[in-house]
């Protein structure tokens, strides 16, 4: 399914309604006596913050049906932004109360109620830890795998304490129907998390893969070839990605998203090309043949149009070429004649990932390649520097904008720049696709 503003609007409306559901639940049914405006405000932000926390689990649950209209990476980007807002809402809840009435300090006083004080203090600490460990994970040297488990546990703890706190305060939650709704609202994220972290890995166990090839590529990258063991293999659309677990257990926390780089026509050997980026990817070349692997997916809406008359403009840098490579290989295998313009940024000629195969594809497909080198050798007479607005204009001015779709993949800065520039050129939102994984 491609992006449509109708789907996006429905999706956003559903999100807002679910986040407001505690407030809606509060105003239906019997109303308790009103308190001061500050208390009601505080309760309001607390309710909304807690509902947002619950929705966070849905956003990060990799539910294909939920993620489809927007693309999973956009969903995770939204999850990240929503997490910050949820944090602000939840923190505002005690701050408003404490700032307007010091009597509320009793909630945090262990002499008044030890368990309550402990839980509420711990939940504030957990929230701060949740945000700090996510926004500054790399700076504090927290490994991705550890972060993933801590993230889920802290989130569940916050949601659980939030629910208990809400039910104990006993305001706006009277009546069995409302209590049931609250339990469902909190139980659903819990069930989802169990589904993501337990049930899905269990299902994946029935679909193992085996590493059949580890190939070194230009530009410090490695291609890993996986063959399905005892099943037909995953069917995907070029441009999509999957979460890969290398090792004997699908429960491993070392699960990372990578784009397919092989042709979607070939399912007996699925390839991923991974660049050494200074973290766990540095060991990818040491993967042994025969290693068991599991794939969760496919995900992503970064896929070419079915209509062969629509051309593809790919603006990529470095390892951002991988999803495009999958498209080009698929076009070749399916004998597609669609026009493709590839603007491909790299530092120098010797680090251009898939350089030789792209040159070959240029003769087989209706493909024009523009290499842009930031540190070229002295004899380089083509595009030098970075992929700038001015450079893009030079090539995009030559095509009929309405007959093309645009695919952008590369470092964050490049993607922000190119997305904005395409919009300023009048390219409609629905025709711009981007893929990024630097979520955490």
């Amino acid at each position: 399914m491609k992006f449509s503003s109708k789907h996006a609007a429905m999706w956003i409306l559903a999100y807002v309604l679910l986040v407001l559901s505690p407030l809606l639940l509060a105003i239906v049914g019997p109303l308790p006596p009103a308190r001061s405006i500050w208390v009601e405000l505080s309760v309001g932000v607390g309710f909304v913050g807690l509902a947002m926390m619950g929705m966070q689990v849905v956003l990060s649950g990799r539910l294909r049906s939920v993620a489809k209209p927007l693309g999973l990476d956009t969903m995770l980007q939204f999850h990240r932004q929503a997490g910050i807002v949820a944090f602000a809402f939840i923190l505002a809840h005690p701050l408003i109360l404490l700032a307007t009435n010091s009597a509320y300090l009793d909630f945090l006083d262990p002499r008044v109620n030890f368990l309550r004080a402990l839980a509420l203090t711990a939940v504030i600490g957990a929230l701060v830890l949740l945000i700090v460990s996510t926004l500054w994970r790399e700076q504090i040297g927290l490994r991705y795998e550890w972060w993933r488990s801590i993230h889920a546990l802290l989130a569940l703890f916050v949601i659980f304490v939030g629910l208990v706190h809400t039910l104990q305060v006993q305001y706006y939650v009277s009546g069995n129907v409302r209590r049931l709704a609250w339990f469902l609202a909190i139980g659903a994220p819990l069930a989802l998390m169990i589904n993501t972290r337990v049930i899905r890995p269990l299902q994946l166990r029935r679909f193992p893969y085996s590493v059949i090839e580890v190939r070194e590529e230009l530009g410090n990258a490695w291609t890993i070839g996986l063959a399905p063991v005892g099943h037909a293999g995953m069917r995907f659309t070029p441009g999509q990605f999957a979460w890969i677990t290398l090792g004997p257990s699908p429960f491993s926390l070392k699960q990372h998203p990578f784009s397919f780089s092989s042709s979607a026509n070939v399912s007996d050997s699925i390839e991923f090309t991974i660049k050494e980026l200074g973290d766990f990817t540095n060991d990818i070349g040491k993967t042994e043949i025969g290693t068991t692997a599991f794939l969760e997916g496919p995900f992503g809406a970064f896929t070419p149009p079915n209509d062969q008359d629509i051309g593809v403009v790919a603006i990529v840098a470095g390892v951002g070429i991988t999803p495009i490579m999958s498209m080009l290989r698929t076009f070749r295998d399916r004998k597609r004649s669609r026009e493709v313009l590839l603007v491909y940024g790299n530092s120098d000629w010797d680090t251009i990932l898939f350089r030789n195969e792209i040159a070959q594809l240029e003769s087989e497909l209706n493909l024009k390649v523009v290499h842009v080198l930031s540190s070229p050798s002295d004899d380089w007479d083509q595009e030098a520097g970075y992929i700038t607005d001015e450079l893009l204009d030079r090539y995009l001015d030559q095509i009929d904008q309405d007959r093309w779709q645009y695919f952008v993949c590369g470092p964050e800065g490049l993607m922000d720049e190119v997305e904005s520039h395409l919009r300023s050129r009048g390219v409609p939102l629905k025709d711009i696709f981007s893929e990024r994984f630097q979520i955490v």
């Binding site: 807002v16 986040v19 407030l23 405006i37 932004q81 904005s420």
Partner: peptide, 30 residues
């Protein structure tokens, strides 16, 4: 959906939610 718009979308939703909470509090306290 473009990433450059996700932040703005969240800011808009955040403002909308704050307004909803304010309306709720005002409605409750008359």
């Amino acid at each position: 959906m473009l990433h450059i718009y996700v932040r703005w979308l969240m800011i808009a939703i955040g403002i909308g939610l704050v307004l909803a909470v304010v309306v709720f509090a005002l409605w409750r306290t008359g």
